[in-house]
Structures are given as structure tokens and as C-alpha cells.
């Protein structure tokens, strides 16, 4: 019953917005409770709730599961290929390059000794973010990481990982004591302590916003460029090639951005973990 009501609302919205509003862009970018396969119809996703919390499966959650499944399948294939022989072959080569890059260029130099413990976490973050970013470039798919809730969750995981790493290597009190630079006058502590506590949260907050903004921006730009064609209906033969050309350029740029953002997210997480592990005293 609620589904039908919502559907009619959405359809009405879409019709309303197609008249020149910006809603249709949001419609493509925002999370929703159905997977749209226009013009082949759509699949409605189930509504769930747990202890009063709405945990309905949304489009972004559904695609994050697809990303996760694809990752498991691909990486199991890679892992199996190593059992046959240690010489990489086929897709193993590609994955090996990325894995070695994450290990030798991101995690090893930032965390240093004992980096092996954090390697699975960083590899998972990198591959999950990378594949999520790249998934947005597939038609009918969606960018999981352009949902601020998803990036907030990832940043939250980073936050927990950073605090855990710091406490693990410095001890609970040692870690929080190490946050404050030594030799501070007592008066300055009044300013420093709130600043440092704020600093703990700004780091993952920046991670969250950076990834979200970067991933949504490209899509909004592409959709806006395509939208130009419909706005300038009268000059469609002039505007269409230009708009499509620019959209294509942005699309290619998105591939680069997808790689860079996955790298930055992992790199900064590793950096913060490294800073938490090796505190300056």
C-alpha cells in the first residue's frame, strides 16, 4: 500500500521535474527504495526496521552488496590462482599490482613496523571504495560512495580503526596522554585539550566529506551537461554534441577521480593510523 503511494508520488515528481527543475538530477543521484531500470520498469526493495531504526534495503545498500560479492568472487579467484602457482597470470596480475601498491606505497611507509596487522583492513577499504567508485560509471548502476551515509560509515570505521590502533600500541591512557604535546603550560591545556579532541573527529569527517563530494560532483556535472540538451531544446543539434562531448570528458575524468579518491581515502586512513601508532612525545 505504501509502495504504491510512494510510486505515484515519485512518478508525479519525475513528471513535474522533467519540466525543467533540478529534481531529476537528484532523482538519479539520491538513494531510493527501488532499483530503476527505465524504460524496463523497476524493482522495489523491501522495507525493514530493527528496534525502531529504519534499516530498509536501499539502492545504495543493494549495490554495496553487489560490490562486496564481486570483490569476494574476484579475490577468491586471485587467491586460488596462487595455489596453482606463484607466478601471476591473467587478472591476478592486475590485483597483484594493486595489492602490492597498497602494501608498499601506502601502508608500509605510513605505519612502518607492524604494518602487517593493518594490511587486510586497508586492502579491504581500498578495494571496496575503488570498486564502489567505479561501479557508478556503469549504466543502471549507482555510486555507492556518493551517499554521505555510506562515506560517513566508512569514515566512522576509519575513526574506530585509528583509535583502536593508537590504544593498541600505546595503551589506553598512554594514547590519550600522547595526544597532548609534552611540556605544555597548564594554562594552554585549556585550549589544547578541546582542540585535540576536536582534531580526532575532524580527520574522519574530512575523509567522509571528501569522498562523498568528489563522487557526487562528477555525476551531478555529467547529469547537468546532459540536462542542457533538454533545456536548450530549440538548439538540440548544436548543444547535444557539445554537451555529450563534455559529459564524456567528465566521465573519463571520473575514472581518474575514482582511482584517486580510493587512494586518498586509504592513504589518509593509513597516515592517521601511523600517527596514532607513533605518537610524538
Amino acid at each position: 500500500m505504501t509502495n504504491t503511494i510512494q510510486d505515484t508520488v515519485t512518478v508525479a515528481d519525475t513528471v513535474h521535474k522533467s519540466e525543467g527543475g533540478s529534481g531529476w538530477i537528484l532523482h538519479h543521484v539520491l538513494d531510493s527504495h527501488k532499483i530503476d531500470f527505465t524504460p524496463f520498469g523497476s524493482i522495489n526493495l523491501p522495507h525493514l526496521s530493527l528496534f525502531g531504526l529504519d534499516i530498509s534495503i536501499t539502492k545504495h545498500i543493494f549495490f554495496s552488496w553487489i560490490v562486496a560479492l564481486l570483490l569476494i568472487v574476484l579475490l577468491v579467484i586471485v587467491a586460488k590462482s596462487y595455489k596453482k602457482s606463484l607466478i601471476p597470470k591473467g587478472i591476478t596480475n592486475l590485483f597483484e599490482i594493486i595489492i602490492i601498491f597498497v602494501r608498499d606505497e601506502i601502508v608500509k611507509p605510513t605505519i612502518g613496523k607492524g604494518y602487517e596487522y593493518f594490511l587486510p583492513f586497508h586492502l579491504t577499504i581500498f578495494f571496496f571504495v575503488l570498486l564502489s567508485n567505479l561501479f557508478g560509471l556503469i549504466p543502471y548502476s549507482t555510486t555507492v560512495t556518493s551517499n554521505i551515509a555510506v562515506t560517513a560509515a566508512l569514515a566512522g570505521i576509519s575513526f574506530v580503526a585509528i583509535q583502536f590502533a593508537g590504544i593498541r600500541s600505546n595503551g589506553f591512557f598512554g594514547y590519550f596522554k600522547g595526544l597532548i604535546p609534552s611540556g605544555m603550560p597548564a594554562l594552554l591545556l585549556i585550549i589544547i585539550i578541546p582542540l585535540e579532541i576536536l582534531g580526532l573527529f575532524t580527520k574522519p569527517f574530512a575523509l567522509c566529506i571528501r569522498l562523498f563530494a568528489n563522487m557526487i560532483a562528477g555525476h551531478v556535472v555529467i547529469l547537468s551537461l546532459i540536462g542542457l540538451i533538454f533545456i536548450f531544446k530549440a538548439f538540440v543539434y548544436v548543444v547535444a554534441p557539445v554537451a555529450v562531448g563534455f559529459a564524456l570528458f567528465i566521465y573519463l575524468l571520473e575514472i581518474l577521480v575514482a582511482l584517486i579518491q580510493a587512494y586518498i581515502f586509504t592513504m589518509l586512513t593509513a597516515l592517521f593510523i601511523g600517527m596514532a601508532v607513533h605518537q610524538e612525545h
Binding site: D31, L50, L53, D54, I55, S56, I57, T58, H60, I61, S64, W65, A68, L71, I72, T124, F128, N147, A149, V150, A152, A153, L154, G156, I157
Partner: peptide, 15 residues
């Protein structure tokens, strides 16, 4: 959306 945060954390941790 808190539900998305919940599911993302669950998905990521299990993954």
C-alpha cells in the same frame, strides 16, 4: 540515513 550507515558498517565488517 541511519539505516544506510548501519548496513554499510555491517557490510564492510563482514566483507
Amino acid at each position: 540515513n541511519p539505516g544506510v550507515i548501519f548496513w554499510t558498517i555491517v557490510t564492510f565488517v563482514i566483507l
